[in-house]
């Protein structure tokens, strides 16, 4: 059992947990992920590591409640409760070097895993420009940590309720078009956002890194469910990634593979909601 040390609601159906797993915390580096399983009948889901604390042995993850497992975690797992299985750190760590000027683009819940990368890049001596975006101000989170991690931060919302109105890719294009010399871009968020960011940077020839969140089971190279096409070859997001060169990733295939279990996931979620009609915190 891996105890939950802290649980905070950071946005609508978005929660931040700190889970006690000292061996994982000690070994984890930015860009890596965990696989967790809540209970005996649970599925294994990957969660990107947001932060670690060697003193408490805590690992921070941010979870968007989109399916049965994440909703159940929000409803039933509070501070002091135990998660049955936590394994990690998995995947290759981000390549952190002194590149020069780096733009870190985070969309939606992707802001969370971007944060430790931005912080590490700045600590490595880069000038870090952050661009974070969400549907509206209500959905925006981690603005303060990102502001502290970056040299400058741009906020975008679809409706203009916070920062500028528009998509993160709009701001990315604006900065690139301004003529600023950019040495590398990180983009983490929904697949469609990462795809658009990749297309935005491609004409400028700026190397762009994305973090692939495909469906996976073991997270260690055994199932192949997470396979993505990178430069025409099959790569496993779990052991070859999760980060890849955005200009080489086949995003259309990624999106179609991410949608494979939509019906089953909807069925599982409906069944859970029927059986748990009064998830007290559900409508927060």
């Amino acid at each position: 059992m891996y105890r939950i040390l802290s649980k905070e609601t950071v946005g609508p159906a978005i929660r931040e947990y700190i889970v006690e797993a000292p061996e994982v915390a000690r070994a984890a580096r930015p860009g890596q992920f965990l696989v967790i399983r809540l209970h005996e009948d649970g599925e294994r889901i990957p969660l990107t590591i947001v932060d670690t604390d060697d003193a408490t042995g805590g690992i921070t993850v941010v979870v968007q409640e989109v399916g049965k497992t994440t909703l159940e975690m929000g409803d039933r797992f509070g501070v002091g409760d135990g998660i049955l299985d936590v394994v990690g750190p998995l995947g290759e760590a981000s390549e952190i070097e002194r590149f020069g000027t780096v733009i870190c683009v985070g969309g939606g819940v992707g802001i969370a895993p971007l944060f430790p990368i931005a912080r590490a890049l700045r600590e490595a001596g880069n000038r870090v420009i952050g661009i974070i975006g969400a549907r509206s101000q209500e959905h925006l989170f981690y603005e303060e940590p990102m502001r502290n991690a970056c040299d400058e931060l741009h906020v975008m919302t679809d409706d203009g309720s916070a920062g500028d109105r528009g998509f993160v890719s709009d701001k990315l294009r604006e900065i690139l078009e301004s003529g600023l010399s950019v040495d590398r871009v990180w983009a983490i968020g929904p697949a469609i956002m990462m795809k658009v960011c990749a297309e935005t940077t491609r004409p400028f020839g700026v190397k762009t890194i994305v973090s692939i969140n495909s469906v996976m089971i073991d997270g260690t190279g055994m199932c192949g469910g997470c396979r993505v096409e990178v430069a025409g070859a099959a790569k496993f997001a779990c052991v070859d990634g999760p980060e890849f060169d955005a200009h080489e990733v086949n995003f259309d295939l990624l999106m179609s593979r991410q949608a494979l279990y939509c019906e089953d996931e909807a069925c599982s979620l409906e069944r859970y909601k029927m059986r748990n009609p009064v998830g007290e915190e559900r409508d927060q």
Binding site: D41, E43, M222, C223, G224, S268
Partner: peptide, 24 residues
């Protein structure tokens, strides 16, 4: 599917009992 994935879903994750278990 790789056979590993197909069998792991079924055996280790007991997908044959989905939706009582969570792995489809």
């Amino acid at each position: 599917y790789s056979a590993n994935e197909f069998l792991t879903r079924t055996n280790l994750m007991r997908a044959y009992r989905f939706p009582e278990t969570d792995t489809p």
